[in-house]
Amino acid sequence: MILIIEQILNGLQLGVMLFLMAAGLTLVFGIMNLVNLAHGALYMVGAYLATYFFQATGSFVLGVALALAGTLAVGILTELVALRTLYERDHLDQVLATFGLILIFNELIAMLWGRAAIYSALPEYLQGHLEIAAGLRYPLYRLLIIVVGLAVAAALWYVVVRTRLGMLIRAGASNRTMVAALGINIRLLYTVVFGFGAALAGLAGIMAGPIYAVQPGMGELVLIQVFVVIVVGGIGSIRGALAGALIVGLVDTLGRAFLKPFLATVTTPSAADAAGPALASMLIYLLMAVVLALRPEGLFASRG
């Protein structure tokens, strides 16, 4: 039982990481109708900048703040230089151009920091464990990720539902031409939303740094999972991104943990050994195919 609770926490933690990535991506999809494969690159930029600034300043908090600002700047710059011209293009152009951006970002990072993974430190006070319940000790840093992720989700909800910016975002997602016709500076709105999404991806990268390998190409390892999240949740919907992220996080984690033992109870152990890991790695794609077959617009589609 303790183990199941612990695995649910693990799934939750993976889910909120995916959510931070997915939130920005889904907004950019929903509002600008832009497929941005290079979103994973911003995650990588966040991780590298946080590592660099933490080392340079000696303060984790300051390092995180500077890295967030840095990723925001990189995001806005990318939008202004390359992506702005892509909004009116079709998905094919967007996929290819942002595929090119992935190569450019990865190689730029390799030029600056080399191809080897770099060490991203965790401050002393974030190490260690917390006893949540009897027999359940959970790493402090992972709990922090869950808390930060849920806090960001709440803040995003507030911004989108309660503020003028949020109103514009919602309006933009459902009818772009109408927003433009109302005299809103749509270019500025786009740039703001893109920068915002970039910073969220950066935040995910910053938090990933101390526990994952910080190296060129680290963004692509999570990118495809994030796409699954968005498509399952429904494009353009923050609510969908959150639901999708938690579902994918839980399905993936629980699948990895319990699929093999479960299969062993229904088939022979050797068959479970062979099929379990393979099936676990395909599980989220299977989930996505099923969702799309039943609801082609995802679970929480923002547009009819």
Partner: peptide, 28 residues
Amino acid sequence: AVSIRTSGIYFIMITLAFTQMLYYMGIS
């Protein structure tokens, strides 16, 4: 049969997902 029911970005992603499944099947 499954994918063509969807369109736009959903189509891009579902075709990607199916290929990922086959890829992981291949390496297993």
